[in-house]
């Protein structure tokens, strides 16, 4: 956390925008994110076995939120109060899904594909956490480097 931020850092609490506008931004983002996920499933429906499409949707959404949260909450590089509700809570929250993941695991269990079920459960969690971690670390490093390049103390 920087001690000499040019503006006040957005706290990880309620964004400083009217609640109605925040809800509208979350709803619009949720619609777009859900549509993008649906589009991916229409393009790549898959056919039993490991649910690759939902896996890729969830892992890519986790990488994107890692970068977004560093840019907004952690470093305050993006300060517009509706960016996080729209992109983070709305688009990425609507794009990624936990229910389809849980249903995918239970579907594999019901079909007695126990090893695939366990692999899907574990590999998704590991890849999602790895993606959010790697994206956050890379974004921090990128911000630090560009800050020192500008001659500013990060």
């Amino acid at each position: 956390m920087s001690e000499q931020a040019p503006q006040e850092l957005p706290e990880p609490g309620p964004p400083a925008a009217p609640q109605s506008r925040v809800l509208a931004a979350v709803a619009a983002g949720g619609a777009l994110g859900a549509l993008a996920r649906y589009g991916a499933l229409v393009l790549w429906p898959g056919g039993g076995g490991f649910p690759w499409t939902v896996f890729v949707v969830n892992v890519s959404g986790c990488a994107l939120i890692g970068a977004l949260m560093v840019l907004t909450v952690e470093r305050g590089r993006v300060t517009h109060p509706l960016v996080r509700p729209f992109l983070g809570v709305g688009v990425l929250g609507g794009f990624t899904t936990f229910s389809t993941y849980a249903a995918g695991v239970s579907d594999l269990l019901v079909r007695q594909e126990v090893l695939t079920a366990m692999a899907y459960a574990a590999v998704t969690a590991a890849a999602a956490l790895g993606a959010v971690w790697a994206a956050a670390v890379a974004t921090r490093a990128w911000l630090d480097r560009s800050a020192s390049g500008e001659g500013r103390a990060a």
Partner: peptide, 23 residues
């Protein structure tokens, strides 16, 4: 199914926030 499962349940639940909070 499109309205309630893919749309509502899909967006009500999230993997991105879940993994960021875990991180």
């Amino acid at each position: 199914h499109a309205l309630l499962a893919t749309g509502l349940c899909g967006a009500l639940t999230t993997y991105s926030t879940f993994s960021y909070e875990t991180l």
